[in-house]
Simulated assay, not measured.
Amino acid sequence: MDPPKPEDARVTLVTSRNLVRASDAVPAHHRIADVRHGRGLTALPEDVWGGSDEDESADEDSADKSPERVRARKRRRRRCDAGRNEIVQALITASGLLNRVKVVEPQPASLEAARALHEDAYLQVLGAFEEASREELMAYNLVDDAAPFPHVLQHALWIAGASLCAAAELAAGSADIAVNLCGGRHHAGSSRASGFCFVNDIVLAAQELQRRFGRVMIVDIDVHHGDGTERAFLHSNKVLTISFHQREPGFFPGTGDSSCRGKGKGEGYNVNVPFTHESDRAAFLFAFEKVFRDSFAFFSPGAVVFVCGVDALKADPRGGLSLEAEDIVACTRIIRELCVDGPTRVPLLVTGAGGYDFAAAAKTWTRVVAELANAQSSLPEDVPEHEFFEMYGPSWRLR
Rank of each mutant, 00 (worst) to 15 (best):
R215V: 04
A359R: 13
F389Y: 14
E131C: 12
F251R: 03
A139K: 13
G250P: 01
R261W: 04
Y269R: 02
R77Q: 14
S378I: 11
E86M: 09
R185V: 00
S236E: 02
L142C: 07
A193G: 09
A330G: 00
P317C: 08
R212Q: 13
D201A: 10
F196N: 06
T364P: 11
S322Q: 15
L181Y: 10
A297R: 13
N180A: 05
A33R: 11
E385W: 13
L98C: 10
S52N: 12
V125A: 10
R115W: 07
D144V: 11
D64K: 01
F288A: 07
V223G: 00
S300W: 04
G195Y: 02
V88N: 06
R10T: 15
V310F: 11
V48P: 07
K363L: 12
E7F: 10
T351A: 01
D176K: 02
G226F: 05
R76Q: 14
L349D: 01
V48Q: 06
A370C: 10
D201M: 08
S194W: 04
A162V: 08
E169V: 07
F196T: 04
E7V: 15
R115D: 04
H187Y: 02
H245N: 09
D120G: 11
E56G: 09
S300I: 13
D280Q: 13
A109Y: 04
A325V: 12
S62L: 10
R318E: 12
